[in-house]
Design a protein around this nucleic acid. Structure first.
Length: 268
DNA sequence: ACACTAACCTGCAAGC
DNA sequence: TGCTTGCAGGTTAGTG
């Protein structure tokens, strides 16, 4: 499920149920995720209190008494609040039981996510670019760091050293709104167009968060409610269908192994 | 430094 | 009906 809005929606959904709670028990049924779940994590976190939790890029960070847990949902992961009595479903891999009687259940069919414990810095967080919704991210930055870059603009804005949290859906949508072809070389785009693109990235992400994340196959937020952003997607998943602006047929190409839908008339 | 590919894994839909 | 193929929200490791 996860692009940044889905991760943010998940954070907001679970936060009231787990913040300031003690971990009474952690159960790992399947440790083979993107990286192996930290060895011995069950006994390490038992008895520790969740002092705070926040999002960085598409990672969730749980600050405990003696370190922090880094959680990623990969391509298909989700977190939900579950009763202890709830049966384990297929692809439920981890449960964190809390002192208030709630459980946090991690579900991830493709197992591309992670649960990593560290007493210090997490290497995954080291070389991340700015948050897209922060003031540190703007068109001037995109313009400055793209000079002489030959990489196509779509994989450029999707790379985490440039700006975090812009995945395949929202990259496609922001480029459409900006009138920029996804395969245009990053170094050939003007400062003015990058300013427009940065603003559209902010707008599309903020709107999706406001609407509770995109509905993609089975995305539901931690209340079990589906997100409703899918109805406002202009290009993602609409290859071959008419452009909502000019009615020409939307085209598709592969960039960095990711399908990229765009309008060859509206995007230059 | 940069650009690009393969890889991790399961489920589902389309095609034959 | 059943098999095969390709594709799906992300990220890193490795190659040239």
């Amino acid at each position: 499920m996860p692009e940044l809005p889905e991760v943010e929606t998940t954070l907001r959904g679970i936060e009231p149920f787990i913040n300031q709670q003690c971990i009474t028990q952690l159960t790992v049924k399947q440790a083979a995720l993107r990286w192996p779940v930290t060895d011995n994590i069950e006994s390490v976190v038992q008895g520790q209190k969740i002092q705070a939790l926040w999002r960085r890029a598409k990672y969730l960070i749980l600050k405990l008494d003696r370190g922090s847990m880094l959680i990623h949902l990969g391509m298909s992961g989700s977190l939900r609040i579950a009763e202890f009595s709830e049966a384990w479903r297929k692809h439920d891999h981890i449960e964190m039981r809390l002192s208030n009687g709630r459980g946090l259940r991690y579900h991830d069919p493709r197992r591309f996510g992670c649960w990593l414990w560290s007493m210090g810095e997490h290497p995954q967080l080291q070389k991340l670019g700015p948050e897209p919704l922060s003031e540190d991210f703007d068109g001037d930055l995109l313009y400055r760091i793209s000079r002489r870059r030959k990489i196509s603009v779509k994989p450029f804005i999707m790379s985490n050293e440039v700006v975090v949290g812009v995945g395949n859906i929202y990259a496609s949508e922001a480029l459409f709104r900006s009138g920029i072809r996804p395969d245009r070389a990053a170094g050939t785009i003007s400062k003015q167009r990058y300013q427009r693109l940065a603003n559209n990235i902010k707008d599309v992400l903020a709107a999706a968060i406001h609407q509770g994340g995109t509905t993609l196959r089975d995305f539901v937020n931690s209340d079990g409610q589906p997100g409703y952003f899918q109805q406002s997607l202009d290009v993602y998943g609409r290859a071959g269908q008419p452009c909502k602006r000019c009615k020409h047929k939307l085209k598709e190409l592969k960039l960095g192994q990711r399908s990229s839908v765009f309008c060859a008339t509206c995007q230059r």
